[in-house]
Design a protein around this nucleic acid. Structure first.
Lengths: 179, 179
DNA sequence: ACCCATTCATTGGCCGACCAAGTTAAAATC
DNA sequence: GATTTTAACTTGGTCGGCCAATGAATGGGT
């Protein structure tokens, strides 16, 4: 076994590094690496939970804001969620087509449009809330109260750092947490 | 106040909630919310740093693994990065077209293919490492050593939880960290 | 030998998300 | 009041990422 005729004499398991000796590229940023992984897994789990509700991950944020705040100017929505305007436009188009959202031109400003959650979409509110509670539960499996609180604190801190960091242009919305 | 006849009687600032009284949907999952936000910001910052190198966020992982481990079966690569096979296929197609990666059929298994980083791509290694170090630095701005370590520990724990959680099918690769 | 289940990789479709340009309308300036 | 600037979307393009389904080769049963 091993000695593949390709010229690559693979010992078992230990493949030959392609480039000079720096050990593992991951070691440069362990936290960044962890963040990326957690982010992906978190999104997958969220996606699975939301799929049953007919929502795609990311759309919850928009809907939540609409449910909470009622009719809103699209620009305001964009500011609060902090996403790219084009992203929000396309998401709203799909949400509108799905019947979860209604849009009408703002009479006070002919270029703006007002967005609101449809009546039927309100049935989703409770389910989405439950899905998020479940997501939170699964996310924090294995963490006790103190650890959860500490994690939240640290994430908020990182969020702040990255926010001011990434805030060259994009509006960075750190929601003032009332708690 | 603000009896919204649906004619949008907007008092200033305080928009009328569209749906019954549950306060803020975000309160259901503060940590999940924080994770999502941090994830997005982190990705943006990473994207900006990698853009200068001609890489798109997410591609680093593939390249890092290739740099570290040399020629690898695509299936193995898929397992280690934990992404969807189709995702890896498309990323590799683009990386190949960009000249960062080379692929050849595995002589030992005619359906598999071997992937390796090109010689020229090795010039990127150092830059990518630096970019990730910078990303890590910016991520951890405002956190001291102890906090960083704790954050890492908690993230790893969450990763494990979400991993077993999301591991209905997808191979969940939690790299055994040697340190 | 044959069939069947696995595995490997790809394609197509869709969505979130970015950027870059472009369009229209409102504000600001002159 | 006419011109410039700024704001509010929209469109087109590209990528990462998922799922679902397909094609092709391997391997295990019997």
């Amino acid at each position: 076994m091993t000695t593949t005729t390709h010229g690559v004499t693979q010992e078992q398991g230990a493949a030959a590094p392609r480039c000079p000796g720096p050990p593992s590229a991951m070691l440069d940023g362990p936290v960044s690496h962890a963040v990326s992984k957690v982010a992906r897994l978190h999104r997958i789990v969220a996606g699975r939970l939301l799929r049953e509700l007919g929502l795609h991950p990311g759309q919850e944020f928009l809907m939540m804001h609409l449910w909470d705040n009622g009719p809103v100017r699209q620009s305001e929505l964009i500011k609060t969620v902090g996403l790219d305007p084009s992203t929000v436009t396309k998401m709203l188009q799909r949400l509108e087509q799905a019947g979860h959202v209604r849009r009408c031109p703002d009479p006070a400003d002919r270029r703006a449009s007002l967005v609101e959650a449809t009546e039927t979409s309100c049935g989703l509110l409770q389910q989405v809330r439950e899905a998020w509670a479940e997501l939170e539960r699964r996310t924090l499996t294995g963490l006790d109260e103190a650890e959860s609180a500490e994690l939240l604190r640290l994430l908020r801190k990182v969020e702040g750092a990255l926010c001011t960091e990434a805030a060259t242009d994009p509006t960075c919305r750190t929601d003032p947490d009332p708690g």
